[in-house]
Design a protein around this nucleic acid. Structure first.
Lengths: 195, 195
DNA sequence: GACACAAACGAACGATCGTGCTTTTTTGCA
DNA sequence: TGCAAAAAAGCACGATCGTTCGTTTGTGTC
């Protein structure tokens, strides 16, 4: 066990709870007061760990990103490159969007439409994270091209764009419309992207 | 000109402004105060037209839906059914998402992730509107099937799901990532949905 | 032009927000 | 065990939120 000071433990618990809360109410809907109540902390006690609400929001994004890598990306790296790995990423993402630590659906999907018209460090961090995420999909597809699984003249960025579109459509159908066919539609659409 | 009382005129102006504002800050981000300031009205004067903020939000959705029908759906009905009409719907939607009355992108896209975890009349209205919207695309595709333009065993709901996914991916790439290739990617993805 | 009504205003309310202080409690190390 | 530092609490602030109320201004009709 590495040396974990008391403050770090609390801060971790706060971020854990904040990620779950923000997935339901958005990053802007996060409130220091309700967050403190949920964790039996005082507002000022919680606030002390972050110098501002904006800093809290950025760290919430970073914390969710770490979880995302562990849940979606890292396990997929155990799969062979190309199609199997892309399929694993896709399935892992479906699980991620329904996982218990994300009771309101994928935090990044919610944050994307919430922050796209704002400016500042929170938006900047989210934009970078989403760029990286699309990059992961594009890179994985590129390796599939090199392995001869996809047409040599195919555009990896186009594929990443399309694949994320399938995920966003699933998110919409599942969470807003509560469509029980959302998952089936998503899988069908994803398979249609493969040769 | 039909009889337009004074109150109806201001209410219309308020809704017009509110739709534009909500496209940037969301329906929850709408504030009676800033809305009143923008229109040189008093908070209470504006508030009197709506009995609650919730009622305002519902009427904002309805107002945007009317605009949406006029801008996206109605003009497309002038096109021949099937592929040409679907293409018109798609192109009109791209214009809609960049139109001046929607400076923050499509209001419905923003509201979808904002409201999907809430309950109440605002969420209910949005869900119904989005169901109708997907229904329009599915119906148009179904007519294409009847005209022999698509496989007879194709699923119109699957197509509508996929087509909206293309739009959502465009919205994400264009508004959050400011990707200049967003439009090209979207058009390419849409064409890939057609035979 | 008088009169009834709609529309807009101005001020205030309780609540909640993020944030800054000061004080108390807890922690971890010499 | 003692003590400095960290963590948490307590309290208050200015601002802003949706909403209510009483009043003033404006409109349209006989």
């Amino acid at each position: 066990m590495v040396t974990t000071t008391k403050g770090a433990v609390t801060k971790h618990a706060v971020l854990e709870r904040a990620v779950a809360l923000a997935s339901r109410v958005g990053l802007g809907g996060l409130t220091i007061g309700t967050l403190a109540d949920d964790l039996d902390l005082s507002k000022s006690g919680l606030f002390g760990h972050f110098k501002s609400k904006e800093a809290l929001q950025v760290q919430v994004l970073d914390h969710a990103a770490e979880r995302f890598v562990e849940a979606v990306i890292r396990p997929a790296l155990a799969q062979p490159r190309g199609v199997p790995r892309l399929r694993a990423i896709f399935e892992n993402w479906l699980d991620w969007a329904r996982s218990s630590p994300m009771p309101g659906g994928c935090l990044f999907v919610a944050a994307a439409t919430e922050l796209d018209d704002k400016t500042g460090p929170v938006r900047d961090r989210l934009e970078q994270l989403q760029r990286d995420w699309l990059g992961v999909m594009a890179t994985s597809y590129r390796k599939g091209i090199e392995a001869g699984q996809f047409p040599a003249d195919a555009d990896p960025d186009q594929f990443a764009h399309d694949m994320y579109g399938v995920m966003l459509a699933y998110h919409h159908a599942h969470r807003l419309l509560r469509d029980p066919r959302a998952e089936a539609h998503a899988r069908h659409a994803f398979e249609a992207l493969l040769p």
